Simulated scan of single mutants.
Amino acid sequence: MELNPKFRGRRAGRLIGAGAAVLLVLVIGGNAFTTVQYGHVGLYKTFGKLNDSVLTPGIHFKIPFIQQVIQVNTQVAKTETDTSASSKDLQPVSTHVAVNYSVDKETAFTLMNNIGGNFDTVIINPAIQEIVKEVTARYPAEDLITRRDLVAGEISDHLTKRLAKYDLIVNEINIVNFKFSDAFNQSIEAKQVAQQQALKAENDLKRVQIEAKQKIAQAQAEAESLKLKKQEVTPELVQLKQLEVQEQAVEKWDGKLPSVTGGATPFIDVNSLSGK
């Protein structure tokens, strides 16, 4: 038995309507929830207007097709800036600075509502440029090199106060590099060479002085020893030494007298005296 064409049309229409309803529910349901990622906070945006309710990481409901959720990164981020300025002694210096910063979770709405998402180029980089120029102008060029930590600390203090007005947190600042003119670099190198040579000459002088003192001390010790030895020599000791020498001579004598003597004494034939 065949179905009435009219009935078949109605049935098909109902199926299509049911499918469309299911599809609509799925689309609406899929747009009714959103997820705020870890390390971020969310802000509702309704018809272009931000809501000051801050959403924590996780799943949140939103009105489909009417609301959207803007995610704001609250993790530590980094920006790097090159700044050209002059030192206190008017040496041109280029400074490469790296700044680690983060967004305050509690005040993300204020930042996004007043500045927007490009706050790094609108607020942070111009502030770094201005403050680095201001601080480097207070120091001679050589001090920028030898007192880098102090310079970085001063820049960090000023930058922290400046960005706090916009609810931005400065976590760390690093002066990656100072770059000076070739003429200044050559003068620094020449000064270092001169200092090294002066230090070597000073060390050599100290070594010579020490050696001279050692020789004087040694000579004084030898003189003192000789003096003590002379004090130990007495007439009795001399006589004793003479007796020791004579005894040694007698022990070594073979019993024969010398046949010839020299000097003013006439020659004497010892054999003739003995009758041989």
Rank of each mutant, 00 (worst) to 15 (best):
K213S: 10
I59T: 11
E2H: 13
A32S: 13
E142L: 07
N118K: 09
I175K: 03
V22G: 15
L15E: 15
T81C: 06
P5H: 12
L240I: 13
Q220T: 01
T79D: 05
L90N: 05
K241W: 07
L50Y: 14
V238I: 13
D204G: 04
S274A: 14
F33N: 09
K179Y: 15
S274C: 11
A77F: 04
Q231Y: 15
K241C: 02
K276M: 05
K206P: 00
I173D: 01
E251L: 15
V208D: 07
N171A: 00
N113E: 12
G262H: 02
I169V: 04
L144C: 07
D182M: 13
L3S: 11
K206G: 04
G262K: 02
V103Q: 05
K133C: 03
V93D: 02
K45N: 15
E134W: 08
N31I: 01
K227R: 08
I188R: 12
P5G: 09
V176M: 05
E251C: 10
Q231I: 12
T136K: 06
I128H: 02
E189H: 12
Q186N: 10
A137T: 06
E134D: 15
V22I: 15
Q218L: 05
V260N: 14
A141T: 03
Q220S: 00
D149H: 08
D52E: 14
L163V: 00
L50W: 13
D167Q: 14
Q214E: 04
I145A: 07
L257N: 10
F184S: 03
V208K: 10
